[in-house]
Amino acid sequence: EADAERVRELLSDLDELHRRKYLLTDISIFMARWEEAVARRANKVEDKKGRFWEGRFHCQKLLDTASILAATIYVELNPLLANIVELPEYSQYTSLVKRLKLVHLASGHSMEHLMDSDKLEEQAMLKEDVENQSSPKLVTNVLVCEQFLPFGRHKYLKVLDYVSRRKRLGKSSTTATAEKLLVRLGVEPDRWRKTASTFEESYRLFAGSPELLSQTAVEKKKRCLHGMRTARYVYHP
């Protein structure tokens, strides 16, 4: 329940009340306030004090495409790895479901088809041009943030599939497509795949190739950065 005294206080100055309400129409401000409120309550429940976020959230700077891809897939597969869902596409709060909807709308076919058929990928790619002219409104936010990777959503989904169920896929075309793309990004596919499921432990503050990590270390005047061992193992020399 809201503290009655603070409610009264707010109601005594209606201009201030409406100013605060108006501020929340900015999505960034709303998210910041909301997360802060959630974190405060979580701190209270877990009886934590001191620093506000208490290590519950932290930033990782992603230095190249391979690390952006690994981090994105790590987030998308999080509910699966935590055993909250049986299949990644069942996750309620990841962008994956929206991406799949886009593919679905673009190709006019169901998800099962997409995951298993090569012909469909070609068809869908042909249709991608058409789709660009009439973007489905339903999933516009994903459309906006989709261009952060230098390849299309079909390849992205293949890589995601490759990470999430490699064993079952065996030597399929999905494996071939994903591996080819990953090699192009400068990583050893099978080794990279493991970091996509353990991303937070694999790297700390910075993630990327050994060269980029060394460069960052020099810039930050650090001798070495956590994650260098992983990077040397994952990236092609």
């Binding site: 809201a2 503290d3 603070r6 409610v7 707010l10 109601l11 209606l14 009340l17 605060r20 309400k21 929340l24 306030r33 909301w34 409120a37």
Partner: peptide, 14 residues
């Protein structure tokens, strides 16, 4: 939503 409800929600959020 009336002002009282808005105030309550703001207090809960902040």
């Amino acid at each position: 939503m009336d002002d009282v409800e808005i105030a309550k929600r703001l207090v809960r959020l902040y």
